[in-house]
């Protein structure tokens, strides 16, 4: 019967989700290969033909509609069905696979991104509803050469094991520190209460956040 509430993760498969990579041909790779938005795309690649923007207040969809997302300071046009969540738009349409899709039920935090300055679960925001908001993802907060202080602190403090929860944790930690630059240990604990690590690296994560807080003082953060 599993556990109570949020932790109930269904084993039922959603039959409507387009499957990826089942024939050895990943949908994402295939779309990169031929170029997203190409007029040559056949039916079945994009969910449906895009339809014109609806009148304000009226219904649009269920076929794919053109939307614009502002991600890491850059506006991006894409065409998605209204049912496509932000995490699916990022991963399947925009090749930004930092945000992870794990529980897909607003429970685990692996898909955490920062939207309008606040941490949110990207699995539970519709992409169409994320328009007009500043979306910050793990890809936008530092680079391989110059990682974000939170990422650096995670490495220093061994704050990851399998690493699957890490991008979500780093974004949750950054969002937390943006609002609480001088946190106590207890505030860190509560402030990251929306993210789970099944390897149990919480001790390292908390130390990392405290270290990053020190490091980021004086406007050194990205």
């Amino acid at each position: 019967m599993g556990t109570k509430g949020r932790c109930l993760v269904s084993s039922r498969k959603d039959p409507d989700v387009p499957k990826t990579g089942q024939s050895g041909l990943s949908r994402r790779g295939f779309m990169q290969g031929i170029g997203v938005g190409s007029g040559a795309l056949g039916a079945g690649i994009l969910e449906n033909e895009a339809q014109a923007a609806p009148p304000p207040g009226g219904f649009s969809g269920p076929a794919a509609v053109p939307i614009t997302l502002r991600i890491n300071g850059k506006s991006t046009n894409l065409t998605v069905e209204p049912r496509v969540t932000l995490v699916d738009a990022l991963r399947n349409h925009l090749d930004m696979t930092g945000a992870k899709k794990v529980c897909d039920r607003a429970t685990c935090g692996a898909c955490t991104v920062i939207m309008s300055g606040k941490v949110v679960y990207a699995c539970s925001v519709l992409a169409i509803d994320a328009q007009g908001k500043d979306i910050q993802t793990i890809e936008g907060i530092g680079s391989g050469n110059k990682p974000h202080p939170v990422s650096v602190a995670f490495v220093h403090n061994d704050a990851q094991q399998c690493g699957y929860c890490t991008p979500g944790f780093v974004m949750a930690a950054k969002g937390f520190l943006d609002r609480n630059p001088n946190p106590t240990f207890e505030q860190v604990e509560k402030g990251l209460g929306g993210n789970l690590c099944r390897c149990g690296t919480y001790v390292g994560v908390r130390q990392a956040v405290l270290e990053a807080a020190k490091e980021m003082k004086g406007g050194k953060n990205a």
């Binding site: 609806p54 207040g57 649009s60 969809g61 269920p62 209204p82 049912r83 519709l126 169409i128």
Partner: peptide, 8 residues
């Protein structure tokens, strides 16, 4: 999830 029409 099942497809739906969306209004805002």
């Amino acid at each position: 999830m099942q497809a739906f029409e969306y209004a805002s």
